[in-house]
Amino acid sequence: MDVVSDAVSTIRTGRPHSARTHMTAPWGLRFPSLPGAGFHIVLQGSCWLLPPDAAEPVALSSGDVVFVSHGAEIALASHPGSPLEMVTQEMDDAWAPVDWDDAAGGRTVLICGSYQLDRARLHPVLAELPPYIHLPKRVGHHGSLNSVIDLLGNELDHRCPGTDAAIPTLLDAMLLYILRSWYEDQAARSATGWAGALADTAVNTALQLIHRDPARPWTVEQLGKHAGLSRAAFARRFTALVGQPPLAYLTWWRMTTARHLLRQSDTPLRSIAEQTGYTSEFAFNRAFKREYGMTPGTYRRQGGMEAPAIA
């Protein structure tokens, strides 16, 4: 798997949810904070995004996407000054549309929803995202994302056999296309941080190798050779863009992978040790305890609750 896919798969929990909502002005919705991430799509009409940081309102048009990266509370409204109604959540975690009188004014159709994410071990490719991402619909841009949105809107509007299975799959795809679109846009503007790392051929090659085979005893020299750079030049470039040296990132990813396997599977500890590059269960236990403050077995028995940091 590639870096972005891995980053998402290791923190995903449960199923994503969404609801299609028809609004007639005047209206205003305040969405509560989430433990995961939220998204809002304008299918028809227009509205305003009221950001979580009290920044200036952002005008949204048909086809625009707003991704609330870290689950902050935000609001959408027909006008920046519209009164806001708090949105509630039903038992299935789908956003419950608020009933509004059919007053005169423009109609807006929204898809609003959420992803359930475990933020305890957030990959930096996700951690460095801003509080919210606005992806305006532009001709010739984000074509794959726009196609997924069209399919999702059609499934929500015309429920057919298989819709219940199709919607979560489309939502999963949409999350990846949102992230891809954001990082492609960022890479076009700046070559720093993870946008730069994913766009840099040498660094991205090394990242793919680490994610494809974290159990391999990689050396900086080997990774640099595959990346087409000398050991020193590769180490400098990787550290500058990723934020940590190559082998430090390798260890971090091994431990993140191990944590995910312990939480989401009943894979034996010896097998997890092998999959994450440790020659013995003892070595794996020691490395895991150093990282998380407890042994892998204890971590699994406690349901993935990490030990508190020591001040």
Rank of each mutant, 00 (worst) to 15 (best):
D6F: 15
T10S: 14
R12W: 10
R12L: 14
T13I: 15
P16L: 09
S18P: 12
R20G: 03
M23S: 01
T24R: 14
A25L: 00
G28M: 06
R30P: 00
S33M: 06
P35T: 14
P35H: 15
A37T: 01
L43F: 09
Q44I: 05
Q44L: 09
G45N: 05
C47K: 07
C47I: 13
L49R: 04
L49F: 00
L49D: 00
L50H: 00
E56Y: 08
P57D: 01
V58K: 12
A59V: 11
G63D: 06
V65T: 10
F67E: 09
V68M: 03
V68D: 03
V68Q: 05
S69W: 02
A75N: 01
S78T: 07
S78L: 04
H79L: 10
T88G: 08
E90H: 04
E90C: 04
D92P: 04
A94Q: 08
A94F: 00
A104L: 10
I111G: 06
C112T: 11
S114T: 15
Y115G: 03
A120Y: 02
A120R: 15
L122V: 10
P124I: 04
P124Y: 03
L129G: 11
P130I: 15
P131H: 08
H134D: 12
H134Y: 00
L135S: 04
K137D: 00
K137C: 14
V139M: 03
H142K: 09
S147G: 11
S147E: 01
N154D: 07
L156T: 05
L156C: 09
D157M: 12
D157I: 04
H158I: 02
R159N: 11
C160A: 13
C160V: 02
G162D: 11
D164V: 12
L170E: 02
L171N: 06
I178V: 14
L179S: 00
L179D: 00
S181I: 01
Y183S: 02
T192P: 01
A197V: 04
N204A: 10
N204D: 09
Q208I: 07
L209E: 04
L209N: 10
I210Q: 11
D213G: 04
A215V: 03
T219H: 09
E221R: 12
L223E: 13
L229I: 08
A233P: 05
L241I: 08
L241K: 05
V242Y: 06
V242I: 10
G243C: 12
L250T: 09
R254C: 10
T257I: 13
T257F: 05
L262F: 11
R263I: 09
S265A: 11
T267F: 15
P268N: 05
L269C: 07
I272S: 05
I272K: 08
T276F: 01
F282V: 14
R286T: 11
R286H: 14
K289C: 06
E291C: 03
G293F: 09
G293D: 11
T295L: 12
T298P: 01
R300N: 04
R300H: 03
Q302E: 14
G303V: 08
A309N: 11
A309K: 03
